[in-house]
């Protein structure tokens, strides 16, 4: 019951999606659409689970008088604030329209916080690269050169630099950057994508046939 039913569910749902691609008619087409909606509903519940778990952990911190309990209070209050704004003060289904309180929180709180968090990665990446990147051999040197040309080639500085070194038309750094991105990078990405897709197809087949069961966990 703990393992057999999940295995049957996985096989039925997985095979439905595969077979309906070849026979896109009733009832398989309807079943695939329905399972797709089920997926969205369960995924939404999984996100709810994550949010409720966050509340549980934060409340635990407050209950146990953890040294970071003040921040747990901030997390709970901010969570409740946007949830209340979204459910009760933003016009229901029109909750994302400009002018609603949910939209105000998105524009002035969520958006600046997430954009700044990701922008900070520029510093972390620069710091990590400075410490880790060394042109020890030909391969590492090529990686560094490609990164350097792509980075410089996407700034106005590259035009100035190309002028200083009198690089001919078509061989300027911005052109080299485009050549790397459009040809060398595409070729490598293609090899990676084909490899990934082959691996993914074989893993999916193993999951559907019940050979791969690690997602069910222990016992």
């Amino acid at each position: 019951m703990k393992r057999e039913i999940p295995l049957i569910l996985t096989a039925v749902v997985g095979l439905t999606f595969v077979v309906q691609f070849f026979v896109p008619h009733y009832p398989l087409g309807f079943m695939a659409d329905m399972f797709s909606d089920w997926f969205s509903i369960i995924a939404a519940c999984a996100i709810w689970l994550g949010a409720l778990n966050l509340l549980k952990i934060s409340l635990n911190k407050i209950y146990k008088k953890d040294k970071d309990r003040f921040y747990a209070v901030v997390t709970i209050i901010s969570f409740l604030l946007i949830v209340i704004a979204g459910f009760f003060f933003s016009g229901g289904r029109r909750f994302q329209e400009p002018g609603t309180s949910f939209d105000w929180l998105y524009i002035n709180v969520y958006s600046p916080l997430s954009a700044t968090m990701f922008a900070m990665l520029a510093f972390y990446v620069a710091s990590a690269s400075y410490r880790a990147f060394r042109a020890r051999n030909a391969q590492a040197t090529i990686l560094l050169l490609a990164a350097f040309v792509v980075m410089i080639g996407r700034t106005p500085f590259s035009d100035w630099l190309s002028g200083v070194f009198f690089l001919p038309e078509g061989w300027q750094i911005s052109n080299l950057s485009n050549i790397i991105m459009n040809f060398f990078n595409v070729a490598g990405q293609r090899a990676i994508m084909i490899g990934i897709s082959l691996g993914l197809i074989s893993t999916a087949l193993r999951v559907i046939l019940g050979i791969e069961r690690t997602y069910l966990g222990g016992d």
Partner: peptide, 19 residues
């Protein structure tokens, strides 16, 4: 902490209305 709470709440509300 504010980011964590607001993000969780944002997806909580969005997925309710969208899914």
């Amino acid at each position: 902490a504010l980011f964590v709470g607001i993000s969780a709440g944002y997806w909580f509300v969005s997925l309710y209305f969208q899914n």
